[in-house]
Nucleic acid binder design. Sequence first.
DNA 1: TATCGAATTTAGATTCATCTAAAAATAAAA
DNA 2: TTTTATTTTTAGATGAATCTAAATTCGATA
Lengths: 247, 247
Amino acid sequence: MLNEWLRGEVVNIRCLFTQSLILTIKIKMSHSYTEENYIKTIYKLSANGVQDVNTNAIAEVLETKAASVTDMLRKLSAKDIVNYVKYKGVSLTPQGERVALQIIRRHRLWETFLVEKLKFNWDEVHEVAEELEHISSTLLANRLDEFLGYPKFDPHGDPIPSESGEMKHKKQRLLAEMAIDDAGVVVGVNDSQPLFLQYLDKMGISLGTSIKIIDKIPYDNSLEIGLAQDRCLVISQEVSKNIFISA
Amino acid sequence: MLNEWLRGEVVNIRCLFTQSLILTIKIKMSHSYTEENYIKTIYKLSANGVQDVNTNAIAEVLETKAASVTDMLRKLSAKDIVNYVKYKGVSLTPQGERVALQIIRRHRLWETFLVEKLKFNWDEVHEVAEELEHISSTLLANRLDEFLGYPKFDPHGDPIPSESGEMKHKKQRLLAEMAIDDAGVVVGVNDSQPLFLQYLDKMGISLGTSIKIIDKIPYDNSLEIGLAQDRCLVISQEVSKNIFISA
DNA sequence: TATCGAATTTAGATTCATCTAAAAATAAAA
DNA sequence: TTTTATTTTTAGATGAATCTAAATTCGATA
Ligand SMILES: [Mn+2]
Ligand SMILES: [Mn+2]
Ligand SMILES: [Mn+2]
Ligand SMILES: [Mn+2]
């Protein structure tokens, strides 16, 4: 296949006779729906400071088997998307990282669109965005970005990469790691599962909500927190580990 | 597979012991990307008054081989999406027609979105919509419809089916079939290929343009037409067969 | 009606993504 | 340092969608 020989993105084709005419073409490598999901998963698993992602971790996230993961890693390795050493683990190449950031960009732009323009609730968007993120047109992503006013964060507080792959790094800490009397504003969630977001809705917690730690219950590490208008409630550690507060 | 036994959309499950508790569940049959493209193609080929669509016609549209089409027709037949008789041709069942209309609905809504909101030109939208039409969420289609203000026609003048599958039938005739001195307004195109639309752009013809037939050249059936501000031009029969004028 | 040619279907192979089960490598424990 | 357990890879099979080539059917023509 072409892909196996043309690893880079820019190729020069020189006229055989005159050696003068040079055609410089930019080759856009395309990836299957499945490949994209692997790339995104490897990116997310290595984002948490992990150097080499292991096979089983990928298999778990993608709800597939380790053997399938191995097959795909060999394939992505041949495409120069990942650095893969048998039994040692896998990491994205700079190429692969660029691809991952584009997928994440599209995912988060679509989520923003769904919430901002189509009035979806923040717990309804992830699944749809999992499909929309694979629409390949870069013009579409860029126009959508423009239409939304170049948003920097998605509805869950996650940063949206720019066309060139840069994103704002928000200063934040986990609610679980704050001390008594500390206070701040909710700027993100660590888990976008509908059930968790629905729970937050029910508790009246959303991005922008001000929270103050009133007490910590040592028995199960649950937190007593204060919201606006002297409203008080207790949340489990599980929950507090999934809420980001402005630093 | 479940699909082969559960042909309808609503199923009752009765408790074996008490015979009293009845679970009524609505089963949403899903179709692969590929199946959807076949369904849409069969719909479009039968839309022109054709009763039984033949295998080769489908193969040509989908740029595939007749043998592949046969395989898929057996599959869609088992799913009750088409009526298929070997060697005789194929037509959509009422079920299949509903599915087709939903795909076309999504295609045209997305095209409208791209032009109206993202400032795409009308020649840039078809290819992207070919991908977007397969995003399955019906909530998405309905919210998009609402966001766009329930448009009745897409950027090429084609009618957009409602959620229930109804669409406005526009009174129109082909420019090629008009007589000298007849006049009207462009309300649609019969071909959405970029090259054709780009040609129309170049000639200053778009939806809403007023056109009057000035003369017909018998030699090659080309047409001399008049636009606003006494602008005159000659178009080939090929072109005149792809422009719809208000009746 | 018999024959020919086009359209269509069948047969068999290929590629991609997946699986299970078995083998191999690595890491942890004795 | 063996032994054991875990992780990972290989081997081999399956199902979906495709292909080419051969066989079959249909419909038109002789
Ligand atoms: Mn998401
Ligand atoms: Mn995905
Ligand atoms: Mn179109
Ligand atoms: Mn399509």
